[in-house]
Each structure stands twice: as structure tokens, then as C-alpha cells.
Design a protein around this nucleic acid. Structure first.
Lengths: 113, 113
DNA sequence: CGGGATCCAGTAAGATACTG
DNA sequence: CAGTATCTTACTGGATCCCG
């Protein structure tokens, strides 16, 4: 299904899929604050497995949201940094946080009523 | 896993899951433009099956994004309308469209280079 | 240290048939 | 018209083991 610029939904899906993934919002939150090494991300997000963290970072890299820098050292060192394009997702994620909080708050109100 | 307001990722996930689903962006696009009947949505988005359309609409309704109105007529008539809360997702979806288009444009540039 | 390869479970989505 | 029920398939994420 190639891109049709007359269809609204397709480009929205493209943008959505880039940040869709169980741990991507948390990964992005870390990287919005600065460059992180693989192990730092693992410690910051303890519930994600190495495998899934690797897969998500590869997807973010492929989408041009983060850049991956490998240092040819022993032991290996890999750093992940937000690209300029990736930073343009920050307001979107912030908006989703607010909307998610609004939903949570409304559900709590219902429950207490 | 209950809500912890110190964790950034959780509320972002809540907001994200509300608009995540293969056809939700297109459904929302239709409903941003006005109230639609079930059949109108089906004709506007021909590739979605009745089943999946029903499931997605139920999820949107449960999330408080759309409201569902059933008219006790024969033949049956059901209308879906964006709620005020749902309208607050419009700028987010628009931003995702722009970011998706930017990605598509960058990939095209690569391909032509 | 930062992965890759493989296998498995859970969920989302498509196809089809039936209903008030 | 607007669903529901059931089955099947595809994809996502988790667990484990191996590698430069």
C-alpha cells in the first residue's frame, strides 16, 4: 500500500507507528533529556528486556528519530542521541501525556462519584 | 500496574493507546469533520471490516473520545460524534500527520539521491 | 558491553456466517 | 442497518542462550 497524499490517515499512521511500541515513550523521555548509553537506558527502564530495547532502538534509528554512535573500544560503547527530527516529537508526546492524565483523572472522578 | 504519576511513560501510553489501532486515525479524521453514522464510516473507509470498525469504535467510546447515540428506529440508526475530550486530540493527530509527511519526504529524497 | 538468533505466548486484525 | 460470534492468521513482546 504505497503512500497516497490524498489520504489523511496514512501519514498519521506513519508518524504514529514511529512512537508506537510498548517502551518507546519511556525511551524517548530518556533521550529527550540527553544522550544515553545502552546500559543507561536499561537501568533507567528496568522492565524492558535487552532484546526488546534493542529492537525499539533499531526502529527509532530507522525512523530517523535517534542516531546511534558506536565507539570502537573495548569494552564496546554505544550512544543514542535524539536527532533534530526526533525532537519535533517532543510536543506531541507532551500533549499525549496531558491527554492521558486527563483520562486517568476523569476515570478517578467517576470511580469516586 | 497502577498509575504512578512520577513515571512519564505511563500517561503517555494511555494517550497513545487511545489513538493506536490500524484504522483509528482515519476514523478520527472522519469524525473530526462531523457526526457520522456507522454505514457512512464504512463507506468512507472501505478497507476496514465491520467487525474491526465496531471494535475500534467501542474502544474510542470507552476512552471517552467519541459518543454513541442509538436511535430506536427501524431500520436501526447509530451516530458517532466526537466529544469535547476527543477534539483535544485533533492537534496531536495533525502534528503526527506533519511528522509522518516529513519522514516520507526524507525517504523520497534519499531514494532520489 | 552491546548486541544477535531462536522459540514461545498474547493480542490485534481479517474472513466468514449469523441476528435483532 | 448495525451489529455479534467464531475461527484463523500476523505481528509484538518476553525468555533464553550465544557472540565479538
Amino acid at each position: 500500500m504505497p503512500y497516497e497524499d490524498e489520504v489523511y490517515g496514512c501519514p498519521a499512521d506513519v508518524g504514529l507507528q514511529m512512537i508506537s511500541g510498548k517502551w518507546k515513550p519511556r525511551i524517548l523521555y530518556e533521550l529527550f533529556q540527553g544522550t544515553r548509553r545502552f546500559g543507561e537506558l536499561q537501568r533507567a527502564i528496568p522492565d524492558v528486556s535487552r532484546h526488546v530495547l534493542t529492537v525499539h532502538l533499531r526502529e527509532l534509528e530507522h525512523g530517523g528519530i535517534v542516531s546511534r554512535t558506536v565507539y570502537a573500544e573495548v569494552p564496546p560503547k554505544v550512544e543514542y542521541t535524539m536527532t533534530e527530527y526526533g525532537r519535533s516529537f517532543e510536543p506531541v508526546l507532551e500533549a499525549l501525556v496531558h491527554l492521558g492524565e486527563a483520562y486517568i483523572a476523569s476515570r478517578k472522578d467517576e470511580h469516586e462519584s
